[in-house]
Design a protein around this nucleic acid. Structure first.
Lengths: 206, 206
DNA sequence: CTACATTTGTGAAAGATTTCACAAAAGCCC
DNA sequence: GGGCTTTTGTGAAATCTTTCACAAATGTAG
């Protein structure tokens, strides 16, 4: 498939959210203009984004909300469930585990690890925290699609390396470091410091 | 000042992190090449990014680590402290409050709010959770630079509106909604669902 | 002091993304 | 069915971002 810009994928994901809202409200069709207004972009952008994947609309009418929801789910790969392992049972991990949207969208947390002996063995939303030293043993015989790294900065890279060695191809990283992984592994890093600094920059340069 | 791309600002923020590492290691000068290698970009990109703000290097030698750290701090507006109000005392809020990098970089949390009566009045890292209904009363007579919104999705917009009314010009939003604010207010949204879906897209289209 | 090795800073070229603008399709009304 | 209105899908143009490539500094060694 032709290479699609990350910005496009992010917008598709947003459109999906808005379409789901519309669906709940019982709205049956929507124009690119309406979708754009909801998402703070332009109708041309919406049409262009969708056009990379096909033509889903009806001229003169707009898009069927239901149909577009399905198409976008398909495009984004949300027609299946993903098995997620969380490494790090600290505050952020805890917050994530309880985040409903996770499960709702088909991301099932199937294992949680930590190195802290006081945490290992404790229950966590129906799962038991396992010893991070046993990562390999625990994950060898079960499929994991996505690793969420919520460890301190200094262990994040070594955890990532071990996940890669286990064959995991997608990592969501909350540790404030730049992870190095092979080309066939995708990493998304959520770096709070970066977000704060873009705010600080914006506040300074006005 | 000429408009600078957000991607550039984010990279500057990354460079700063790497330079601080170098500084700790006692490295005194660094080339654009070395900085690029650390950050997974190219030397031309590093030089171009910096060139928007001045010329900080010495030809044939590179950049003084110490000097560049200072320049970048200045550019990013990190030469001061920011007063942060957190609205929502749930798990994510809790994780953020304990995140060291926050205070370390000059972002001081000065107030925490929640609507939940069982949380109001409780101590939280040296602060007392205040009733969110009293947001205006509590913030009217003290400066707040940044609001961090960590509420459920359905109250995020109304909280944002109230922050805007109080004159707050920067918002870091963790609620999974698109916030609408006037042009002179900056919003950064950290949307977990979006990140997961770009991963899911990447896993699907390979 | 000169030749040489580096490495910056920056116009220009290449590449990517967004916006424009309009023909083509589709429904609606008479 | 014909004319009118709406709205898509998409090449082309405009804009933005990254990469290239090289002259200009700067230090070093002989």
């Amino acid at each position: 498939m032709r290479k699609i810009a990350e910005s496009t994928v992010r917008r598709l994901s947003l459109y999906l959210r808005f379409l789901e809202e519309f669906e709940e409200q019982g709205i049956e069709t929507v124009s690119s203009e309406a979708l754009a207004a909801r998402g703070g972009t332009t109708s041309a952008q919406v049409r262009k984004d969708l056009s990379f994947f096909g033509s889903f609309g009806k001229r003169g009418l707009g898009y069927s909300v239901q149909e577009l929801v399905q198409k976008l789910r398909g495009i984004l790969g949300l027609g299946r469930t993903y098995r997620v392992a969380m490494i790090g049972a600290g505050k952020i991990g805890s917050a994530l585990v309880q985040y409903r949207g996770f499960k709702q969208r088909g991301f099932d947390i199937v294992a949680i690890f930590d190195t802290d002996a006081t945490k290992v063995g404790r229950g966590w939303n129906g799962l038991t925290v396992q010893d991070a030293r046993e990562l390999e043993a625990a994950l060898q015989d079960q499929r994991v699609d996505i690793a969420v790294i919520v460890t301190p900065a200094d262990s994040a890279q070594s955890v990532a390396d071990r996940c890669v060695a286990l064959g995991i191809k997608a990592v969501l990283n909350f540790a404030p470091v730049q992870l190095t992984v092979p080309d066939d592994v995708v990493v998304k890093t959520v770096n709070l410091a970066l977000e704060l600094e873009t705010l600080s920059y914006a506040l300074t340069n006005r």
